[in-house]
């Protein structure tokens, strides 16, 4: 018993070492670098909070962070709502279920690059939907959000929701299928309308599925990079920049490693600040 415990620990040692070196080591190094005056190459001259101060004053960074919050809030809520509606629809109309499930889940199997390009063409006023509408006679139709700085972020939301709603649907459908059919019967005998049953009885039973879906969506919000690159390349101007793209650009194109690592560290701290209480709460919930 005891020796097998030790054996297991020895077997896990490489994994533990890799985790320590790769994750903690590089994270620590990144944070350290963010306090240096590194430009193209890492340097060891400490400059204190200077990179962070210039980050706060950087208009592009401010736009990126604002975009991230706007995108995150809209994307997560829209994907949850749409995913739930799709799941409920499939759950009620069992016919051709596997077809619908595949169709809705299909976008998720593509990379954000493909999604981004596809929607870039669709929403391009000179190429996509607008041109089609004009061609078939709807000359009044006008949709140019992709090239309007004040609206472009919503087109990113649109593409991302199309991409991820199927995943939410799959997760919530599994949750719906796990609900005892007698609950539905009881609700009908009780005289609850279907919508009321969903809201008051079924939704509260799906909190676990919703938490899983939200977590997955949230990680793709934080990672948001490729969609912005493929769809708008951050434009027009800097209107659709996002933090991950800010980091990548400053790291590799603008040769400002210090600023890039400061941005990355800021993101990390923000995520930990949000995730830690959540994880703590989850753990406590599991124990009781």
């Amino acid at each position: 018993m005891k020796s097998s415990h030790i054996n297991a620990q020895i077997a896990l040692l490489p994994a533990i070492l890799i985790a320590l070196v790769v994750y903690c080591g590089t994270t620590g190094w990144t944070i350290w670098i963010s306090f240096t005056n590194s430009r193209m190459l890492p340097s060891s001259v400490m400059v204190g909070w200077r990179n962070y101060l210039s980050l706060i004053g950087n208009e592009r960074w401010v736009v990126s962070v604002t975009n991230l919050f706007v995108f995150g809030a809209l994307f997560i809520s829209a994907a949850l709502v749409l995913g739930f509606l799709l799941a409920a629809m499939i759950d009620r109309h069992v016919r051709a279920e596997s077809l619908f499930r595949s169709v809705f889940l299909y976008p998720f199997s593509m990379s954000f690059i493909v999604t981004g390009l596809a929607w870039r063409w669709l929403l391009d006023p000179t190429l996509g939907i607008e041109k089609l509408a004009h061609a078939i006679g709807f000359s009044w139709f006008h949709f140019d959000w992709l090239v309007r700085p004040d609206r472009v972020i919503y087109t990113l939301v649109l593409a991302a929701v199309w991409h991820a709603a199927g995943l939410v649907m799959a997760i919530l459908l599994a949750g719906l299928r796990g609900i005892d059919g007698e609950i539905w019967k009881a609700a009908r005998v009780d005289g609850l309308p279907v919508w009321r049953t969903y809201i008051s009885v079924i939704l509260p039973m799906l909190t676990g599925s919703f938490a899983t879906a939200t977590l997955l969506l949230a990680t793709s919000v934080v990672r948001l990079y490729d969609l912005s690159v493929a769809m708008t390349n951050g434009g027009p101007g800097v209107a659709s920049e996002v933090p991950a793209k800010f980091v990548m650009d400053h790291l590799f194109e603008r040769a400002n490693v210090g600023l890039a690592t400061a941005a990355a560290s800021t993101m990390l701290v923000t995520i930990v600040a949000v995730a830690a209480p959540w994880l703590y709460y989850q753990q406590r919930g599991r124990r009781t």
């Binding site: 005892d180 007698e182 609950i183 019967k185 009881a186 609700a187 009908r188 005998v189 009780d190 005289g191 008051s200 009885v201 509260p204 039973m205």
Partner: peptide, 19 residues
């Protein structure tokens, strides 16, 4: 509809609203 039939029902799995 079930609610208009003057019936009440009890199920094997209890079917209580868990939340």
């Amino acid at each position: 509809e079930p609610k208009d039939r003057g019936i009440a029902m009890v199920f094997q799995s209890y079917a209580l609203y868990p939340r």
